[in-house]
Design a protein around this nucleic acid. Structure first.
Lengths: 344, 344
DNA sequence: GGGTTGGATGGGAGCGTTCCCAAATCGCGC
DNA sequence: GCGCGATTTGGGAACGCTCCCATCCAACCC
């Protein structure tokens, strides 16, 4: 009755128990679980049967202890205190992300790192082997976290072009903001508009800057076009204010490209208050093709970015690094699309 | 030169190395790391210094292997293929959730389980000890997953009242949908409206049903009030269609309570198309107080639910079960608030 | 002063894997 | 019939931690 007497009452079967059941060694059982080829068909079947019979599931901790991999990746949502995270963006990215991840054995860990305290935690997660790599959605560009992580030797991927292109470049995915803004502005021009204004995003965000350059590029060299620029912060209120300011400067303006949908919605309000008809008097185009664009009045023409695809590509970027740590990866820039509705 | 010769070139220091550095045993070092009290002040200091000097971070896998806890909880977002997840909801819940979690050593794992394949994966994660408990945001109520998990002995908490109150009740947190709808409808009544319609949500979702009963409860016993009900699915298009239907049935109606903001926005469009002024001719109230409500024209009066708080409470519910597995927890129903803007 | 108590400490045993090397087995050619 | 390479297998040794028990020492009591 003595024997090895491992009478663990615990529910979960171990690899050892599978091996006993299948009449093979632990090593062979392990090979089957991990899909190694060097197993005889006979043993393969025996182990598979045993696994099914016992309902075996590998213990993640034990595996990770020896392999030194966690098979977990981290998504850090680095949002500032004040600004609420752009909604559809977030959910959509995550959806794409987890779609991509579902083809792999990778788990997704999520951290909202609004405070600096959280930043430390992220670094700890990397250092204690809790995660194998990190993806970041960062709103503000002065964030030192990505660089810190890269310095610590962790695979990192970003959503959104880092505003400060650093020496140690981190691979990122972004929409082609400039092309999107250019397309929108050109569309306004082609519609015959000649007094075309823009409401910009904050100056410290790459997306804002790129959309402004897109606007400028579209109008470059065009004669007889009046350009007007007002500053916004991507928020609705700022859009309304900017629109009022623009109307003050040029009451005759006939088109506005706003660098975000909320700002466009704000502009719509200001235009209505000023008695302008949209699109008859003034055409309006937004950016993001958010839920909002489908619910304003008139419906908002907007530049759509492939958020879900961006999530997928983000995951791809990280996975590629996991496979090949030394790989130098180029940024992934995804095309935008102008979605025409009623406002332009 | 022989000795124990553990010359691991790996970067990460182990507890053993900390112990050596501090001139204590591994056991004592472990006690310090885990905050045990039975350590002399002298040893305490020595170990702490060593930890700092070496930059020691406990290895999660090793710890979890022996403690049989993963210190990780899972959030399952169980969305159906067709319906896009209600946006602000998701991000906001997650924000509250991770806020609450940041006071604990718990990590957050995220799975989007749109397909059945994903469901299996969730159950595996529980069984292989990858997560200690599961939180679910489920859109459709016929989901067997929560019950399966409970049956497997895992701590579970839900957002949203399960439509089928089961024998094995799972603790959940929800907004007080009925009270919210009641408040909105009563507000319309108090404003002197007497032909009050509602646009409902889908019949298979608790939130939809509860909001309908709230509407009914508000008008119960009231004389001289015309009631009208049209069916929607929470989506904008359905709201627009329902509004047209309602106007057909009763061109004189003077108020609508829509069970979601997108439906309210749709109603706004239909009303405008029908030449009705809002709120002068018809008052409109939505539900959720989403971004949308702050950007329609006119701005939407809406019932706000404390989504972030719901996230926190969700986490609390799970944590309570982690602490005390046998605890029977009551549902947490959180108050809503009517946010008055321009549409009513 | 010896026995007793109790806090602090040391270190062995194990947690469930993977990895690796040695051993066993098989097939095949000469 | 025997040796030799190739394939398959077995099981020891980690991985880094917590748990637990035995030990140690100091203080304290009768």
């Amino acid at each position: 009755m003595a024997g090895k007497g491992r009478s663990r009452a615990s529910g979960r079967p171990t690899l050892e128990q599978v091996a006993v059941e299948a009449n093979v060694s632990r090593g062979t059982a392990s090979r089957v679980v991990n899909g190694s080829l060097e197993v005889s068909p006979y043993a393969l079947k025996a182990v598979r049967d045993a696994i099914r019979k016992l309902g075996y599931v590998p213990n993640h901790a034990a595996r990770s202890l020896v392999t030194r991999r966690s098979d977990t990746v981290l998504l850090v949502v680095s949002e500032s205190e004040d600004r609420v995270f752009s909604e559809p963006f977030f959910a959509s990215i995550v959806r794409g992300l987890s779609q991509e991840l579902s083809n792999t054995p990778l788990q997704l860990n999520l951290v909202m790192a609004s405070t600096g305290r959280q930043h430390d935690r992220v670094e700890q997660l990397v250092r204690n082997g809790h995660v194998d790599g990190v993806m970041l959605i960062s709103l503000h560009g002065d964030d030192p976290l990505p660089q810190n992580l890269v310095a610590a030797g962790a695979p990192v991927a970003l959503i959104g072009r880092p505003p400060v292109p650093d020496a140690t470049t981190v691979p990122y995915v972004d929409a082609d903001n400039e092309a999107g803004a250019r397309a929108a502005t050109e569309y306004l021009y082609r519609q015959g508009r000649r007094r075309i204004a823009t409401i910009t995003g904050p100056r410290d965000m790459a997306a804002g800057l790129d959309r402004l350059s897109g606007y400028r590029a579209a109008l470059r060299g065009k004669r007889g076009v009046t350009r007007l620029v007002a500053q916004g912060d991507f928020g609705q209120a700022s859009g309304e204010a900017a629109m009022r300011e623009l109307l003050g400067k040029d009451p005759e303006l006939d088109a506005v490209f706003a660098a975000s949908d909320p700002m466009a919605a704000g502009a719509l309000r200001a235009l209505r208050a000023a008695g302008r008809r949209v699109p008859d008097d003034v055409a309006v185009i937004g950016f993001d093709d958010s839920d909002l664009a489908r619910n304003t009045n008139p419906l908002l023409t907007s530049v759509s970015q492939p958020t879900q695809l961006m999530g997928r590509k983000l995951a791809e970027l990280l996975i590629a690094q996991l496979r090949e740590p030394e790989a130098k990866l180029a940024p992934v820039i995804l095309p935008t699309e102008l979605v025409c509705r009623e406002s332009a």
